[in-house]
């Protein structure tokens, strides 16, 4: 623990290369590589899909629930629209919305958590108690409550899902930031009268980046589940837009006889969440002392 280097050198113990090293170790795990490959594939489908779709996503081109064949590879949906085209168009919204919601949750939560860890005392207590109040309202319930008044708008869903992430992110970042806040280089910066916000941003934040990145991954996974679930229930993305969750909502009535229009988007949503989760797992294994906690690769 005793650091013999002069205090001036200590902030330099976290150069940019430490970052690259962490990522390299993370990619040493098979789960990280598999997760990255799956996520990349889903991103390609979501981003390039609209350019590859054979039909307009909301064009009524056949009778409802036509069987898959040469003309419509995956058949048609409840209204006679091409399932493949709706799939290819339907990934973009859930991708950007879940990443945006997780980002909002991270910014809010990490700010609160770091502030609480660094200020301690009554401010920390108040901040974390307020977080407990938000924690008592699960994502979907919070969104449903507000959406019932303001209507299901995309930005609203994104902001609300982001807010619902805030307490968990705050807890995690408070935990890791509290460890850093007592370290030598922070005390040294304090002794030099460096402003508090500068210490938070320049000394504490860079040192908790990896655990925050793991949390970011987990938050994206939860956002995907929450946002897709809202669309499945009819309170997320609205018709006639093409969206994976909405596809499940529209076609679940014929799940017994025509499972494909439900299963295909369900599998894509699951793969997206799975891919991001595997990457978060890999990164988290890097932190928790490699094989000690997680065992197998």
């Amino acid at each position: 623990m005793v650091d013999m280097a002069s205090p001036m050198d200590i902030p330099a113990e976290r150069p940019k290369r430490a970052w690259a090293a962490t990522l390299r170790t993370a990619f040493g795990y098979r789960r990280t590589r598999i997760g990255a490959a799956i996520t990349l594939a889903i991103l390609v489908i979501a981003l390039a899909g609209p350019f590859l779709a054979p039909y307009e996503p909301s064009a009524f081109i056949s009778k409802p629930f036509a069987k898959p064949g040469a003309e419509f590879w995956l058949g048609t949906d409840v209204r006679g629209r091409d399932v493949l085209s709706r799939l290819l168009y339907g990934g973009l919204a859930v991708v950007w919305m879940s990443v945006a919601a997780a980002t909002i949750g991270m910014i809010l939560g990490a700010s609160v958590g770091m502030l609480a860890a660094y200020s301690r005392g009554w401010l920390a207590e108040v901040l974390m108690r307020v977080m407990d109040v938000f924690l008592a309202l699960p994502t979907i319930i919070l969104v449903l409550m507000v959406v019932s008044l303001l209507g299901p708008q995309k930005w609203l869903v994104v902001v609300l899902v982001g807010i619902s992430h805030m307490p968990q992110v705050a807890r995690v970042s408070q935990g890791v930031a509290a460890d850093v806040a007592g370290r030598d280089f922070v005390l040294f910066a304090e002794a030099l009268n460096v402003p508090r916000w500068k210490i938070l941003l320049r000394e504490i934040l860079p040192n908790i980046m990896t655990p925050l990145l793991v949390e970011y991954g987990i938050r994206i996974v939860w956002s995907i589940a929450g946002i897709a679930a809202l669309s499945v229930m009819g309170y997320g993305i609205q018709p006639p837009e093409a969206d994976w969750g909405l596809l499940i909502n529209e076609n679940r009535g014929r799940l017994a006889t025509r499972p494909l229009p439900v299963l295909a988007p369900a599998i894509l949503i699951a793969l997206f969440a799975l891919g991001v989760n595997l990457m978060a797992e890999g990164l988290s294994a890097t932190i928790s002392g490699v094989a000690r906690k997680t065992g197998a690769k």
Partner: peptide, 27 residues
């Protein structure tokens, strides 16, 4: 078990439900 559980951990609950319906009550 760890491999299976890690895979399962990422999948949203409603999709598990849909797959169970397909496996055990329809297809």
């Amino acid at each position: 078990a760890n491999t299976l559980l890690i895979a399962l951990a990422g999948i949203p609950e409603f999709i598990v439900g849909i797959v169970l319906i397909v496996l055990l009550s329809t297809q």
